[in-house]
Design a protein around this nucleic acid. Structure first.
Lengths: 341, 341
DNA sequence: TTTAAAATCGAAAACGTTTTCGAAAACTCC
DNA sequence: GGAGTTTTCGAAAACGTTTTCGATTTTAAA
């Protein structure tokens, strides 16, 4: 306790706090000799500046807030690692909040972060949010926001995303080119943009290859926390549409649920029905057969998001005009066993 | 921008900032009527207190820091979720830092958190740290620290742990009771307490059941990020000690590496050699055969750690004597396919 | 009507910095 | 030795709150 403050150094040296402060910060109007004395005294007295006081005076906290919609697992885990690494590199701390896919909570948490005076916030939208005034309000108040992964096209800010529609299109085209003909889709819920986009990619790929889209082949998996959804819908589809030969799943998690059911039910993957996942999560290489999937660069996404955000923070601080960027990270198909006969 | 401040409300109402502040905080020496006027004006002017100023004045930040040694994956992911949930419930924000198993980084990050004036810090030690002066220093300066999972017995603070030695003892005893006789152990590196304790539990269980301990049957897996270690050591042990009939692995991750190798090499699990994991991570039920493991309550650990920490924070604030607790969370065996013939 | 008690308010100090601006001291140059 | 420069320093304001303590006003009691 009893941290040493500027005034302690000042009185120990018989000089003013002003001089001490300037000496420590390298102002040029302090003589070499007193600067040296201050530095030494600060060292021996183990001086550590009080960040809160500095924050108040300088009006910046060197802290960014992050709101993620889901529990820290799977994909967000990678993003978070990217965020933490880049933030550390740039000298910022990060406060994490999770909205549990609830709009009201997301709104409250954003307000909390602003109240805490974070310098900026990174967020991925909850499945529920279709009103963006809280975000626009934050931006209007000069707290920069950058959206990642689950974004809103209508919000004017920087974003880092993948092209979900294209990735899905590629995935389904791959399946078609491999000779699969009756391809089902296990989609996510109806609100999130990436769920919509992946569905559209699926649909367009079918149409582009002259396969008629059949709405009976799309099943909804809106539980993001375990693979039960994929498991149960796999069971369902095999009684309702036993003649499918491939499933394109919205996430690796549901894909794994599917494969688990198939394994238990004695349905051969990929011989009888192929399975294609999405995200390239860690366990997609653990399961057997190993899952073909789309590599979604979560770590890189976290990196870029932080980078954009901090760039914008300093632009604002230096009164430069801010320009919003939309970074689209490349995805690629990771071919493994679940689609290769 | 241009947040409204106390003085704005005050001058709008023709009263002093003191009165406004008191009215907002419910002081009893403000009349009902002016209090009502202040509240209403604060509402219409959309007043939000400046947390930084409050922090400076009250000398608390309502923020806790968390230092985890490894990337946010697997076990720490669960702990983090528990931390976030409990912290939110108690009105604290959480700043996350990861030390990447480096002592120097851990030390630096702890100093950073203290400089930032967090009210307390939660940490799980890096594999490298065998010097605890940085932690003792933090505690001495009145920043409470609670250790979880990877702790140091010699640091005097609250801790929340599992009994690694007992859990390992139980696991190995279970294997012995199942009739396995030549049981290997894939241990972690030499410094971390839980690695040591699990090894000791293994050794004691053997001895308690009259099986001679053979140091040639313990292999070191010190890479915590993927399952290559388990995979490679599995390969190695089957040439060096092909007659083993069970392996007790320090984590599910290495257990999965083992199973992957066995699956590829055509070694039957558990018929030829059984595999026992540790932690009950998500994918232990994904792999085939499903993994028998020890359930390590990560979420609960996060919960309890935050709870202990915040209790201590308020004890210190109210000048009550602080008492350090050590909470030992129960573990249990989850029997699945990898050990049941 | 006077006095004591209670209710209501505000001035000012404090939290620990940073930064502006002016003053004093030390040089330079003739 | 005096005018002009350059170095070096510090007083004070500011960031936005909270809280102490005294002052004033109102109410109650006598």
């Amino acid at each position: 306790m009893n941290d040493t403050k500027l005034i302690d150094i000042a009185s120990a040296l018989g000089i003013s706090v002003t001089t001490v402060s300037k000496a420590l910060k390298g102002y040029t109007d302090i003589s070499k000799s007193t600067r040296a004395r201050v530095l030494e005294m600060a060292e021996t007295m183990n001086y550590i500046p009080n960040s809160v006081a500095v924050n108040l005076r300088t009006n910046e906290t060197k802290t960014i807030g992050v709101i993620i919609p889901a529990t820290v697992h799977h994909f967000f885990s990678s993003v978070l690692n990217g965020i933490l690494e880049e933030a550390e590199k740039r000298g910022y701390l990060v406060i994490i909040l999770q909205s549990n896919e609830k709009y009201e909570l997301e709104k409250k948490q954003l307000a909390l972060l602003i109240q805490k005076r974070v310098d900026g916030v990174l967020m991925s939208l909850s499945n529920e949010t279709d009103d963006f005034t809280h975000i626009n309000e934050a931006i209007r108040k000069n707290t920069p926001v950058v959206l990642f992964d689950k974004i809103a096209k209508r919000v004017d800010c920087s974003k880092v995303v993948i092209n979900d529609a294209k990735a899905a299109f590629d995935a389904v085209s791959y399946l078609i080119n491999k000779g699969y003909k009756k391809i089902a889709h296990f989609r996510g819920s109806y609100v999130p943009q990436n769920s919509i986009d992946r569905f559209l990619g699926y649909k367009r790929a079918l149409e582009a290859h002259g396969i008629e889209y059949d709405s009976k082949l799309v099943y909804v998996c809106d539980n993001n926390t375990d693979f039960e959804d994929g498991y149960e819908n796999a069971q369902k589809i095999m009684t309702e549409n036993p003649d499918i030969d491939a499933i394109f799943a919205i996430t690796d998690l549901v894909a794994i649920g599917i494969i688990k059911y198939f394994n238990e039910a004695g349905i051969k993957t990929p011989e009888q029905v192929a399975v294609f996942g999405f995200s390239n999560w860690f366990m997609s290489t653990v399961i057997s057969p190993k899952l073909t999937t789309i590599d979604q660069p979560g770590f890189e996404m976290g990196h870029q998001a932080v980078s954009l955000l901090i760039d914008e923070i300093v632009d604002i601080k230096e009164h430069r005009p801010v320009t919003h960027q939309i970074i689209e990270l490349p995805t690629r198909i990771i071919e493994r066993e679940s689609t290769v006969k």
